[in-house]
Nucleic acid binder design. Structure first.
Length: 117
DNA sequence: TGTGTGACGGGCG
DNA sequence: TCGCCCGCCACAC
């Protein structure tokens, strides 16, 4: 039986790791793609995190709406079934959103590298 | 097999 | 301050 290549194995783990980290984001908090990428040791590859989040649609229990870009902007809302649902979900958890942007992002920011020791 | 694309981030003029 | 360009790497065609 063929053994999976290290590269393929790592790719799978990367996606899984992204989901795992996103699931650990506390309610009422948000994080950025770059922070997740840095935590996974893929610093500079924040795009891969976004790619993984697109695939996260197939999974359930992935609060992808808690992930925004470094400016606290809901750039990925268009990828949800209900683009407006992303903002509504955040506001329901106490995260104020104005103009597709998280209010007081600096305080709401949750850094896995620091909080998730 | 090669090329284009993207839910990003940092740097430069 | 604003806008543009480059690097990053997995995936689709």
């Amino acid at each position: 039986m063929p053994l999976p290549s290290d590269a393929a194995q790592r790719r799978t783990n990367f996606f899984q790791d992204v989901y795992d980290v996103v699931k650990l984001i506390p309610p009422g908090r948000v994080t950025s793609y770059g922070a997740i990428a840095a935590y996974l040791g893929a610093k500079g590859s924040a795009r891969m995190v976004g790619w993984a989040l697109i695939a996260s649609h197939a999974q359930h229990g992935i609060p992808a709406y808690r992930v925004v870009n470094r400016n606290g902007m809901l750039t990925g809302k268009q990828h949800f079934d209900n683009p407006n649902g992303m903002q509504e979900s955040l506001e329901k958890e106490g995260v104020q959103v104005k103009d597709d942007q998280v209010v007081d992002f600096a305080t709401r920011f949750w850094d896995p590298a620091k909080e998730l020791l």
